[in-house]
Design a protein around this nucleic acid. Structure first.
Length: 397
DNA sequence: AACTACCTCAACCGCTTATAG
DNA sequence: TCTATAAGCGGTTGAGGTAGT
């Protein structure tokens, strides 16, 4: 019954791989494919366990791996997807072609997480670290709103994760990179709620995101209440969709992330300093970081935060437009822009100007309604683009 | 030059999920 | 349907490199 043991670990080598071992593994896989990882080491003449061989191949030897410095676009993608997915490195990796989850994880832990920390942002929650200090005394109502908000966002987040998983699996099965194919297969599935529909229907997670987008971008086009209702409907649909990763939501990370976008509001006077006023940050530039911090500390005419309770309700943010309040969703976009806006040896063209994920919130202000709306639209466009983007050339699948 | 502290990242560990029998 | 195992995944470690004193 079942399979035989993977390997007894007696006599197997551990630690760094030698070039000879790499060569053996490469040669074997190129000729035979990896097949069963368990059987591979003996066939390839390696004193390693299959697991070690698999890791060496997937994280280092595989020919379609891109190594070296992360581009600005990659960094921004990581930050934004981390805000959405938490420490789901494999899911994030599907949107970073030719990067491994291990590499992304390392890069986050050694670079990006520190940058956020220096900015006063909790890298786990993507919220300001002193958010607690800014909370109001209205604890109960705030908590209730929090729960509601978290539930909605958790649903959306989980569905996005689920779709990533589905895409990944489909891609591994039929080697297709087409998002449309993914949708079609999903819709054709007997168990799929979309199976009866003859047309390709976007996944529900996008419904939710778009509904949210509508809430934030079109307050005057329809009533806020209807927008909220749209979100509720979309959110309700989420529960109908199979989400194979739902059980993973208990890790707690995503729970925080779920509320991060909307609890964080700011009045950004710095914007995205692509040129001229830029230079606020360098890849390893401590001084530049200090400069940023000095100009962006809370209450120092830059980023400010309202209490969480003020924006928990979906109807509230619109009321705050005139109060120089910018929805928290914008913040992720802005701080990634700020984070990436300058770099000694990098081209600004990647992270500034008209980015491919909805543009950059540049310049000063953040106190106008139009900019606020545009910022939110841009932010959601970026998320939608990320979620929708097909990692067709991803090495992972 | 020697020592120390810090940083990076490949690799391992252990848990979870998927799957063969 | 159940059990055992493979595969996948995220957290952590530690060796090697680099910067600072």
């Amino acid at each position: 019954m079942g399979r035989s043991p993977c390997c007894d670990k007696v006599g197997l080598k551990k630690g760094p791989w030698t070039p000879e071992e790499d060569q053996k593994l490469l040669a074997y896989i190129e000729e035979h494919g990896h097949g069963s990882w368990r059987a591979l080491p003996s066939k390839a003449g390696l004193q390693r366990c299959g697991k070690s061989c698999r890791l060496r191949w997937t994280n280092y030897l595989r020919p379609d791996i891109k190594r070296g410095k992360f581009s600005l676009q990659e960094e921004q993608t990581i930050i934004q997807l981390h805000a959405l997915l938490g420490n789901r490195w494999s899911a994030i990796a599907t949107h970073l072609p030719k990067r491994t989850d291990n590499e992304i994880k390392n890069y986050w832990n050694t670079h990006l997480k520190k940058r956020l920390a220096k900015m006063g942002i909790d890298p786990v929650t993507h919220k300001p670290k002193n958010d607690a200090l800014l909370s109001t005394a209205d604890g109960q109502s705030k908590d209730a709103a929090n729960l509601s908000h978290m539930a909605q966002w958790e649903s959306a987040r989980l569905e996005a994760e689920a779709r990533l998983v589905r895409q990944s699996k489909l891609r591994s099965n039929n080697n297709t990179s087409s998002f449309q194919n993914t949708l079609q297969e999903f819709s054709n599935s007997p168990s799929s709620p979309l199976s009866k529909s003859p047309v390709v229907v976007p996944p529900r997670c996008l419904d939710i995101l778009k509904a949210w987008n509508g809430v934030w971008t079109n307050p005057n086009e329809s009533s806020t209440a209807s927008a909220v209702a749209a979100v509720s409907v979309a959110g309700g649909l989420v529960g109908d969709v199979e989400s194979p990763t739902s059980t993973l939501s208990s890790n707690g990370i995503g729970d925080h992330n779920s509320t991060a976008f909307f609890e964080f509001v700011g009045n950004n006077s710095s914007g995205s300093n692509c040129e001229g006023g830029g230079g606020i940050m360098k890849e390893e530039g401590e001084e530049d970081w200090k400069g940023f911090e000095n100009s962006n500390h809370l209450g120092e005419n830059s980023i400010t935060f309202t209490t969480s309770s003020e924006i928990h309700d979906l109807t509230v943010p619109m009321d705050h437009v005139g109060d120089n309040v910018i929805a928290g969703s914008t913040f992720v976009e802005r701080f990634t822009d700020l984070l990436l806006s300058t770099s000694g040896d990098r081209s600004f063209s990647e992270g500034c100007g008209e980015s491919d994920n909805g543009g950059v919130t540049a310049g000063s202000g953040g106190d106008s309604t139009s900019e606020y709306l545009e910022d939110n639209k841009n932010y959601w466009n970026s998320i939608l683009n990320l979620v929708n983007s097909s990692p067709s050339d991803s090495a992972m699948f």
